[in-house]
Design a protein around this nucleic acid. Structure first.
Lengths: 137, 137
DNA sequence: ATACAAGTTGGAGTCCACTCTAAGTCAAGT
DNA sequence: ACTTGACTTAGAGTGGACTCCAACTTGTAT
């Protein structure tokens, strides 16, 4: 599968594909004799992996770590699992943050809804936000 | 409330606080006669709002738009509600993405778990990813 | 044969969201 | 009087993640 097909299949620019390869988020892709990338099934799998992780807000750095472990063979199963568990924790945290904001939004939208009807916005001191201790987006 | 207190309360640097003000994500904060920022309740409310939205991955640009509407008074209730609805849609999308990745991770972690036991990793062509059409993180 | 599309490279540029620097002001404490 | 610490400004710098550029090669279609 050539650059363009992959690029179109996943709605991601050829530049980004090359970028991922350059930084090591996907392993070096095999080439035709003339040097053009020809993605194998596994290559595609790696691309999918990067895209998924990036879509979920996982930093490229982490994807690279994972890719490195994958290239080191069967001794790294545990390390890979641990890394993925770490990724999972991060994503859970992100979801929680977004869920909290969703509640807040729901509340605010409702307030505007009534404000539009009544013409007056009730002030809210109630919806105070507890700041976060850890920060890892 | 002074810069430092606010900064400490929300675990955010004074620089960031000034930055938010500079770009208009929060309105101009009143100052003491010597020009030092003294945050009122409302100011704090705005700060909280920015922090919440940013925590949820809302781009600063959008926070600025919202802040602008807020400063334009009671005629913008509907516009504000609409903007918040748009924010909500974005956040829902982000949560969905993360949820999908979570499933994928769960599956992969399980695979590694068995791989660690058996010493062999079963190859998965099953967990193919459908690419996304729209892209708005 | 030649045009065209799609690819290659290395390196520079862009955008976002901060983050830091330099040079200065101010109020309180010793 | 002087130091300290918290603040002020304008503006430059950083890090992450792409994204674009120039110059070139390749394979296919007319």
């Amino acid at each position: 599968m050539m650059m363009k097909e992959v690029s179109e299949k996943y709605h991601i620019s050829p530049d980004t594909l090359r970028y991922y390869e350059r930084v090591g988020a996907i392993p070096r892709v095999n080439r035709t004799k003339s040097g053009i990338r020809d993605y194998t099934e596994q290559d595609i799998g790696c691309v999918e992996n990067v895209i998924c992780m990036r879509n979920a807000g996982v930093p490229v750095e982490m994807v690279i770590e994972y890719a490195k472990l994958c290239q080191q063979g069967d001794e790294t199963f545990a390390a890979r699992r641990d890394l993925l568990k770490q990724v999972r924790r991060g994503i859970l945290k992100q979801i929680e943050k977004r869920q909290r904001e969703l509640e807040r939004l729901e509340y605010k939208i409702a307030r505007y809804e009534t404000a539009i009807e009544t013409g007056k916005l009730v002030w809210d001191s109630t919806f105070s936000v507890q700041a976060e201790t850890e920060n890892d987006e």
